[in-house]
Design a protein around this nucleic acid. Structure first.
Lengths: 210, 210
DNA sequence: ATGCTACTTTTCTGATCGGAAAAGGCGCCC
DNA sequence: GGGCGCCTTTTCCGATCAGAAAAGTAGCAT
């Protein structure tokens, strides 16, 4: 008893998601049309144990945990992640040229590709960059994840916080940690076109309402 | 499979890699210059518990588990995955046009971009596709992760297992689950150029060497 | 219905976990 | 050396987990 106040398992708020986990576990088993016995055999656990875990009557320890993942042949992380609106297995989507959602900021015009594919682990977008003189320079962006940029047309100036500026020509590319502040601009007086792929959604960087 | 192949758990029913897990946990804490007390506070666990877990004297249950991940502010999956050669924080690398490692297969010529950046979560590559008639069709590739493909030049035929074939023109792109077998080819009698980004390393698909 | 079979839940007991407090280190200052 | 923080490990015991076996539930024959 006692100390658990801070942890408060009972409170729905600070749940560690065990209920969801339990449900996921059962769902995974059912999806494979396996019985408790099957899972028990493949994992080396007792049937009763699997049953209790699935009904959230018991919190499995590390070992049972990994064995369960193993028995269901999923990566352990899949047992934790809520994939309810995750990338759908077997997903497949085509984006025709010009077929996308626009995202306009002070500095950029981005065309988000595949805006309808939820939970994808990469976010590809096409960008049109204004010339340097027209840019606001207080608007460096930083966000979680990694970023890949390739220049399709024109010349692009890339500023990454704490790194020397780089000029990229068409066909050049750059890969960096998005957590560093970064900023792109056309390096000439015409617009440039880029393809940019992030591993995480970029918040529609509020330009100056800071 | 994927990640921990090298770790070789061997006996499926024996060790579940807890020792490695324990070590990783301690390493993570040390890297953050946190004490057992710190982790205990942030996780709501007892100091002794954290100590025991780190020394592999105890197998934490689901709840302690997620709390620990939380306290160390890592994703739970990171506690399982061995990131010994992970992406370096603040990484930043430029690839000039023509500056890459070649990867030649029966069907494709790929140019891996940023081959030296280890542990990046996206693997971008440029590809030159031979015309359809010259392709081997028994060599569909499938691998973990997701895949993004954009056509830079030419017209490309994309076959994805269980999906209708698609012809992409320059500027078109496609996003799909790489676990479905897939195959690209130039849809005309000249070569096509593509940019392809995967979320996982593509094994140098041995075409038919058993 | 009765029985049969396949699957799941409950029960009960030993094993292990989890936490508070006590006991070790260890470096440092006086 | 003794005292003193700081961090870690050990001890001890209640709480929880884990498994074997018993009991319950459901489908499906006869």
């Amino acid at each position: 008893m006692s100390q658990s106040s801070a942890l408060s398992e009972s409170g729905s708020s600070s749940e560690t998601g065990r209920a969801a986990f339990a449900a996921r576990l059962r769902a995974l088993r059912k999806a494979r049309k396996m019985t408790l016995q099957d899972v028990a055999d493949r994992s080396g656990l007792a049937v009763s144990t699997v049953s209790k875990i699935e009904r959230n009557l018991m919190a499995p320890t590390y070992d049972r945990f990994t064995r369960l993942a193993n028995a269901l042949s999923v990566d352990v992380s899949e047992l934790f992640a809520d994939r309810s609106n995750a990338f759908q297995a077997g997903a497949f989507e085509v984006a025709r040229h010009g077929d996308f959602g626009f995202l306009e900021t002070d500095n950029y015009t981005y065309e988000m590709l595949f805006p309808d594919v939820a939970g994808k682990s990469m976010v590809p977008m096409l960008g049109t960059l204004k010339p340097l003189e027209q840019m606001r320079f207080d608007a460096m962006v930083e966000h979680e994840g990694e970023e890949f940029l390739m220049v399709l047309e024109g010349r692009v100036l890339v500023q990454v916080d704490g790194r020397p500026n780089v000029i990229l020509n068409a066909g050049d590319s750059i890969y960096f940690d998005s957590r560093r502040g970064h900023l792109y601009a056309s390096a000439q007086d015409t617009e440039a076109r880029i393809l940019c792929v992030c591993t995480q959604m970029v918040r529609a960087a509020a330009p100056d309402q800071g």
